[in-house]
């Protein structure tokens, strides 16, 4: 079981390393969305600092949404997803490996880039640890929830808009706790509460999302 987990993880990382646009595009999207806000609102530093937590979080959420659509797409098209479903290995474990690989190639770079984005939005440097911690737990949860939607819509030719409709409402708790952690850090308050809640959501998603993802994938070949 662990072997198959590692095998899927390695394969997906290898595929991603050879296809740069998959992980680079959401990242560039993230940077551009963050850049649009000062252009739309004005260069007032105080105002930007005030809205920065929300903007960073919404941008990260949209970038995750954009990236997650491709999670099963190419594997579905070339038939390797069907092989995974038929492989006889526990599908929940395999999809967990796929989501983890996907997070490593899309979520992690986004995390590493976010301090830079925080700086251009004039966020205080002291809130960056809170931003990173909340994004670490939050984007992992978002990837897991998003994967359910990706699995439900992978057999559709144009699933993108539908995917957004299905999973954005489910992203709301993560957004609320994530951005409020950064807001609290900005105000100089403790952030443990928000981070604990994010951690709880993340554990909940790790435990239950693979079941829903596996069930959604099985429907396609029934």
């Amino acid at each position: 079981m662990i072997k198959s987990f590692i095998a899927v993880l390695r394969r997906d990382l290898l595929v991603a390393a050879r296809r740069r646009s998959d992980w680079l595009n959401p990242l560039v999207f993230y940077v551009i969305v963050v850049t649009l806000f000062p252009l739309g609102i004005g260069p007032d530093g105080d105002l930007l600092r005030q809205i920065a937590p929300g903007v960073l979080w919404v941008a990260a959420l949209l970038a995750t949404l954009l990236a997650i659509e491709g999670l099963f797409r190419s594997d579905y098209d070339d038939g390797s997803l069907e092989q995974l479903v038929l492989s006889g290995q526990p599908l929940t474990v395999l999809v967990l490996a796929k989501v983890l690989a996907h997070w490593l190639i899309t979520g992690l770079p986004l995390l590493l880039l976010s301090p830079l984005m925080a700086i251009i939005l004039q966020l205080n440097l002291t809130s960056i640890p809170a931003l990173l911690a909340s994004l670490l737990l939050g984007t992992l949860t978002l990837s897991l929830i998003g994967a359910i939607g990706a699995a439900l819509t992978v057999s559709l030719r144009r699933g993108g808009v539908l995917l957004a409709l299905l999973i954005l409402p489910l992203f709301i708790p993560v957004l609320i706790f994530g951005s409020s952690a950064v807001i609290a850090a900005e105000g100089g308050f403790a952030v443990e509460g928000q981070l604990s809640l994010l951690g709880a959501l993340c554990l909940l998603a790790v435990a239950f999302a693979p079941l829903a993802i596996a069930a959604s994938l099985r429907i396609i070949w029934e």
Binding site: L166, L170, A212
Partner: peptide
């Protein structure tokens, strides 16, 4: 499946809001 995922999330969404 979506309805079941939603019903797990409804209390979480409600309390977070």
């Amino acid at each position: 499946i979506l309805a079941l995922v939603g019903v797990v999330n409804i209390p979480i969404i409600h309390y977070s809001v």
